[in-house]
Design a binder for these strands. Structure first.
Lengths: 181, 181
DNA sequence: CGCTACATGTAATGAGTTACATGATTTT
DNA sequence: AAAATCATGTAACTCATTACATGTAGCG
């Protein structure tokens, strides 16, 4: 359950509501982590019960009441412990590779077109990541630039997209020049 | 539920028991798909009930009775349909990147050592994939070589490992030469 | 005597998605 | 008038892991 630790990480910077946490997620780690509100709310509740957070209700006039969560010392310790201990790599399932593996069962043109579609998506992603990397969101001053660790996660995305783009291209070529089908 | 389609893919080649399917999984697609027996058995049962497979019990003397599953026309059609329709990329969660993202919270040496550990694992994986790629597990004749589509999945693994290895190396360097901590 | 291979499952738990439910205010 | 923003949740369901449960045969 890494969601817990991600929440601790963000709350360690600033106390927030679940709703705000969702927005922070989407702005910063969306490319390698996603969490829905219907997962965030119960998790925050659980964490509060476990003593990792405290909660305080902010009564508001023009918007619904908000529950502001604050990390406790115990929460900070939990986060630190998780960050320090090595995390074994999880083998990620890749359904697309299952398709490729059984590709011989259908017309090769249909496989190639799926690869081409993915290639396009990956190229868009790469462009997006490169923009983030170049820090150039224009309306942000240089002060808002990425920290070392934040930039490393973007670099990961870039390397990853470059690798898959290269694989898509080579795969398309190999399939199209193949004899069978 | 891609497990279903993977099972259909393998059963489309040859009728098998759940136990044998597990072994085939582990020998061919382990690097991008994993399935436990306690997941395979109920899934096969469900698929039989859905008419995608038929089952026949083979009574054996020296080993337990075996349930041999065979794909039906309906199953073949289901597989074909899945292979043909585009599959939207699933955003994969990466807990390790969450760690990196919050890396500033702990001593940079502790982050670097985790990266070095991962680098080692990735280098081992790359070597393994390259051996498979070279097909040439020596005791196999060229007939046993990989089909085009099988080899593409191995290429994916190689490209992927090369990318992460490069990222690990650059990240370690950047972290170690950084001022903070 | 213990380990591996063969062969099947169930039950409990965890993680995450999707659908459902509510309701005010502000922007287009 | 419709959509988005703020703000909270619950319930049902899916997918996968881990633990539990059984039992024979063959090998070292």
């Amino acid at each position: 359950m890494s969601l817990k630790y991600a929440l601790l990480g963000f709350l360690n910077c600033k106390s927030m509501t679940g709703y705000q946490l969702k927005k922070v997620f989407d702005k910063s780690v969306r490319n390698f982590w996603n969490a829905s509100l219907s997962q965030i709310y119960p998790t925050l509740n659980q964490m509060k019960n476990d003593g990792l957070l405290t909660m305080e209700i902010k009564y508001q006039e023009s918007s619904p009441n908000a529950k502001i969560y604050t990390i406790t010392d115990s929460g900070r310790e939990e986060l630190r412990k998780w960050l320090i201990e090595p995390l074994e790599p999880s083998q990620h399932r890749n359904a697309f590779l299952i398709k490729i593996f059984f590709g011989a069962n259908i017309d090769k043109v249909l496989i190639a077109s799926q690869l081409k579609h993915r290639l396009e998506l990956a190229e868009n992603n790469l462009a997006k990541y490169q923009q983030i990397r170049n820090g150039i969101t224009e309306n942000h001053s240089s002060e808002d630039g990425l920290t070392l660790f934040e930039s490393l996660t973007v670099d990961y995305g870039i390397k990853n997209m470059e690798a898959v783009i290269s694989w898509y291209k080579e795969s398309i070529e190999k399939i199209e020049s193949s004899q069978s089908n």
